[in-house]
Amino acid sequence: MVYEERNVWAGLIVSILVIPAYIVIILQQAAGRPVETIDWFPLMLWTIGIGIVATIVVSVVWGIVAGARDPEGVGKSDIRDRDISRMGTRVEQSFLVLAGLGVILLCAIGADVFWIANTMFAGFAVSAVVGGVARAIAYRRGLV
């Protein structure tokens, strides 16, 4: 497994753990009260920060283990990695555009900041997961 593919898998693993944790905590706080009263901002920042740090840690640890097993191929990449990265970025951007349009719509109807921020957060989350899955599939099956 090449360096970029390990990073894709690290991001997917962390995203699949961190995003549901955020949702569960928000739902627990929402029990019995309006969601607009939830103090979501610090939780969202912590979730994003923990996700970034955890992805870096998983990537580094996985890289160290891979480097011990195959010192020659640790950081190698080629044109295929670049093409897969571009394809994954295009997939991610499409979901970010949809989230952005959702945010604009929510702003237009005067929705609470909770809904606007969480719509954008959901867009980032879906974008990261779907883009990562697209990249992982491309690494396993190739680009068509």
Rank of each mutant, 00 (worst) to 15 (best):
M87E: 09
V65E: 00
V65C: 00
A68E: 01
D81F: 01
R69P: 01
G75P: 03
I64T: 11
E72K: 03
E72P: 02
M87W: 09
D70R: 00
K76Q: 12
I84F: 01
S77M: 13
E72I: 02
R86Y: 11
R69W: 00
G88L: 12
I64Q: 08
S94K: 09
G67A: 02
Q93R: 13
D70P: 03
G88P: 14
D83R: 15
I84W: 02
E92H: 10
M87P: 04
R80C: 05
G88Q: 07
G73H: 13
R86F: 12
G67P: 10
I79E: 15
T89K: 11
S77W: 08
I84K: 02
D83E: 14
I79A: 15
S77N: 08
S94H: 05
D78C: 03
V74W: 00
R80Q: 14
R82A: 14
A66Y: 03
P71S: 04
R82D: 11
Q93T: 12
Q93F: 13
M87I: 09
R86G: 06
V65F: 00
M87A: 10
S85V: 08
M87N: 07
D70A: 01
D81V: 03
V74E: 03
D83F: 13
V91D: 05
T89N: 09
R82F: 12
T89W: 12
E92Q: 13
R80S: 10
K76W: 08
V65N: 00
R82M: 12
R80H: 13
S85C: 07
T89C: 07
R90T: 08
D81L: 04
A68F: 04
K76F: 04
S94C: 08
R80M: 11
S77Y: 09
I64C: 02
R69S: 01
I84G: 04
D70H: 02
T89P: 08
V91Q: 09
